[in-house]
Amino acid sequence: MKNLNRRNFLKTAAAAGLAISALDSKTVKGADKTLSEDRIGMLIDTANCVGCRHCEWACRVAHNLPTNDLDTYSNTEVFKEYRRPDSHSLTVINEFENEKNPLLPIHVKTQCMHCERPACVSACIVGAFTKHPDGTVTWDTDKCIGCRYCMVACQFQIPTFDYDKAIDPQIRKCDLCFDRRKSGKVPACVDICPNEAIIYGKRSDLLKIAKDRIKRKPDVYIKHIYGEYEVGGTSVLYIAGKNFTELKMPPLGTNPAPGISESIQHGVFAYFVPPVTLYALLGLIMWITKRGKVDELKENNDIQEDEKGENS
């Protein structure tokens, strides 16, 4: 009897675990419902970007980050090494070789992709990230505890952290100039871009434009809109003349990053049924074994008997 019970316990635990893992990853109720049909985005046409880095300057100015004079940004020396956004720059431009025309290198802007199903929003322990109906993903400084789980979760390695600050370190990432847009302006990088290599508009429009450009200039662009389907789609889209992996963009599947983890989470905590069931089950086992134990205790049974049970 008692052995059975212990095994039962193990079985239940294993079964519960299996049930969790067997959950369908598509059952998650995501943020899709709250997204607006007219949600905005940016289309980054790398063929039009000349690498002037003015967006870097404008971004810093718009976000009150320390910056040098605009003229210093024409320095192309920085392209020698691959750069990523950090706590002082929310967007950076990198240069890549262009085999089709060595005189016109490819420049790729990097910033938050504003995923349709953002991993950071799903991951954040205190819900400091918000996916707005217009597509923007923003971060709330008043909530953040600095655990950096968003950085672990982000498929594009975008959120950055102030490692050199002991007090009030910030998680920083592009917010598509949320505050600027409130006053009717376009994001700072879009505004300053001389070539309008960054197009700001409705995501649906941008997709149309991107498809049209690829269709019209098959010798300039490869047939791939990066961000159309990656991790369930992103607000920022890219078109380029070179495979995106070679432009150091991660090759990603179409499944949203938080899909599996959220379904596991919701499976474990489906209206608190599984935990409560487990609780009740354990209580039952406890009660049953205790009743059995009262008699057995009198017989002063010891380990030997248990071993017999174990071996049988």
Binding site: E37, P133, D134, T136, K202
Partner: peptide
Amino acid sequence: MVDAGNKIL
């Protein structure tokens, strides 16, 4: 045709 988020713009 305008969405709340982009209304202003």
